[in-house]
């Protein structure tokens, strides 16, 4: 079962800006899918079209079998949306925000109260339920947005840069929660600037540039496309790096340097040579953000 099918989706804004050009994306039910792209690439436009905030110019979008042109009401019931910016009424009480949102989906007040209590407890907002939204911290507001998107129990959760601007602790907490939601069977479509987030969470990703999909594959396949890997090597004391011209080395500080190696190259000869030159290795680790490098490489093409 496909959660999302997008075919030849195009959007040209009234001012003539072409935001999307024949975009094709398929997301399987239960997948954790990332939409990657620079600012203005068209990610939010895609989400806007799927959720009814943007009118498409051409193409087709189907959510769990419901074509948004013919059965938008049914399609909307399948989706929960967490937008990029806080868009709830700051003067409303937190619990009221959820109850009202549930009402928009036709959920009776008694059922909405039960669901709201469960979500607010799960997201650590229950104690604040009678406070106005403006009194919440930034992290709590993010969680409230997620609770609001889930109050009608959607099959598909769409998150537009949900961890933008949140601290590391909260980001990791949110990752755990999103993983749980996905494990419970919800399909998640995520846009993000944190490519580490994609590597940690997502199984599939599409990269978008200037309104066109430039890559659509499993995240593990995208990572495999990287033919080189950068390692950070920590040493007790930095010494002269002469004799290592065959390697691409960059000194980071007085106790570490980076080395870029071919992914097929074994590390042992390099480490042996370091030891032979008197280096005492205290740590070695991949630099990470491999996807980020691939992403930048693809954007340059």
């Amino acid at each position: 079962m496909k959660a999302i099918t997008i075919q030849n989706l195009s959007k040209t804004y009234a001012n003539g800006t072409r935001a999307l050009t024949e975009v094709n994306i398929e997301v399987e039910a239960g997948d954790f899918f990332a939409l990657l792209g620079a600012n203005g690439a068209g990610k939010t436009t895609i989400i806007g079209i799927l959720t009814g905030l943007v009118n498409k110019t051409a193409g087709k979008a189907v959510i769990y079998g419901h074509n948004i042109d013919r059965e938008f009401e049914a399609a909307k019931r399948m989706m929960g949306v967490v937008p990029q910016e806080f868009n709830f009424n700051m003067f409303e009480k937190i619990q009221d925000i959820l109850i009202t949102q549930a009402g928009y989906y036709g959920i009776e007040r008694s059922a909405a109260l039960t669901e709201a209590e469960s979500l607010l407890k799960r997201l650590g907002l229950w104690e604040k339920r009678n406070h106005p939204a403006r009194s919440l911290s930034g992290g709590m507001k993010r969680r409230l947005m997620i609770a609001r998107a889930l109050v009608h129990r959607p099959q598909l959760l769409i998150l537009d840069e949900p961890t933008a601007g949140v601290d590391v602790e909260l980001r990791y907490g949110m990752w755990d929660y999103l993983k749980q939601l996905n494990q419970e069977g919800r399909t998640i479509l995520l846009t993000t600037h944190y490519l580490e987030e994609v590597e940690q969470l997502c199984r599939h990703a599409a990269m978008i540039k200037e309104g066109k999909i430039i890559k659509h594959d499993a995240v593990k396949n995208l990572v495999k496309m990287m033919d080189r890997e950068t390692y950070v090597v920590a040493v007790r004391d930095m010494r002269e790096l002469s004799g290592f011209e065959e390697y691409n080395l960059t000194v980071v500080d007085s106790h570490s340097f980076e080395v870029e190696l071919n992914r097929t190259t074994e590390l042992d000869p390099f480490l042996a040579k370091l030891k032979g030159s008197g280096f005492v290795i205290t740590d070695i680790r991949p630099k990470g953000h491999r996807l980020e490098k691939l992403f930048l490489d693809l954007l340059k093409k």
């Binding site: 009814g52 905030l53 938008f72 937008p83 009424n89 700051m90 949102q101």
Partner: peptide, 15 residues
């Protein structure tokens, strides 16, 4: 509701 964008709560829902 338009200015604060909470009108979107209604627009994304099947209202």
């Amino acid at each position: 509701a338009k200015f604060q964008r909470n009108i979107e709560e209604m627009l994304v829902a099947p209202v």
